[in-house]
Design a protein around this nucleic acid. Structure first.
Lengths: 177, 177
DNA sequence: GTGCTTCTATGACGCGAGTCATAGTACGGC
DNA sequence: GCCGTACTATGACTCGCGTCATAGAAGCAC
């Protein structure tokens, strides 16, 4: 159910994702919404964001031993495949929450933690490559920002070019301190 | 009225911005909505995006003679001031449409044109600095992606640090081919 | 089997949204 | 003075949403 919510939020945003859509998409019973999510929609979206964030973090960690550029390439590949497979409907659920749900403290905090973990992973990989703490932090910020922005722009362009360019330019930068 | 719509969409997104909010914020008569916007909400948001996009384009153009880094710095400064002045409520209306309104062809096209113009401006400035056509295109993509992503992340972090980092890292890159 | 907890089914409720119809007003050309 | 056009006022209508209340079913300890 949380996975379905994440998938639908990716595509349609928070406001565009209703409980009715979620139960239909997941095949779960409708009557148990308020039982599993006593916190209502906020809770469901919050959990969906954390799930997606953790998923992305493990993807990056898979390429951990190959350095920061490989981690970026890996996550870009996954999202690029999602984009083309869904005809550019699937963006990033965390970005969706950052855009629509930032007023809700619960959602803002969930997104914040996800972004922090992503940056922490990249920072760690860059430090292993000999980056200074400060430069690693700045660069990790840049990478995550560019990645999120690229997902936005890919949908608008109906093309993976922005993501390709971001990966192509940022990859070498992440390696060489 | 369009300006008010742009301002409200920046803050609350499309779904979070109703006609009632717009007429209240702008002080315009409520009864004339369907007269001025026969295309409904879509039309209003579309015009708001184009207005904001043109506004940002003129801001970048003001620093035109000082090169691409100055143009980026200028637009970053404007949005940074908006962020702190509104306690991190004001994001980018174009980004909001890219996230929420991309399914509506009219909105998608409006956002697409705005992004294209921004990239075109940056590309032109970089070509003047001796960049190759291909590298200039890639780099312009990266700059706009990182900028949009930074606005997202600034709201979540409640800090201008992501935007600062993007500007500091990207500025020198835009100058030196 | 009985009773308790956990989960599911169904539907009603209230709210706020976008839209639209109808009526009213201001104003300029002739 | 008259009329056509441009704009405004008001409110009703429908629709879909999140939420909640109530009732029913399944599993399980004893």
């Amino acid at each position: 159910m949380v996975a379905s919510a994440a998938e639908l939020v990716r595509r349609n945003g928070i406001a565009g994702t209703g409980f009715r859509d979620v139960v239909e998409h997941s095949g779960t019973p409708r009557g148990s919404i308020s039982h599993h999510f006593p916190g209502g929609k906020r809770q469901m979206v919050s959990e969906a964001v954390r799930l997606s964030g953790a998923h992305a973090a493990t993807i990056m960690s898979h390429a951990e031993q190959d350095g920061p550029a490989a981690a970026l390439a890996e996550i870009c590949n996954v999202f690029r495949r999602s984009l083309v497979a869904t005809d550019y409907a699937a963006g990033c659920p965390v970005g969706a929450v950052a855009q629509e749900g930032w007023r809700e403290p619960e959602l803002r905090e969930a997104a914040s933690e996800v972004f922090d973990e992503w940056r922490r992973i990249l920072r760690g990989l860059m430090r292993e490559r000999g980056w200074s703490e400060e430069r690693a932090e700045d660069m990790a910020d840049l990478a995550v920002c560019a990645f999120e922005g690229a997902l936005l722009m890919c949908r608008i362009d109906r093309s993976t070019a922005p993501l390709d360019h971001v990966e192509h330019l940022l990859g070498p930068m992440l390696e060489a301190g």
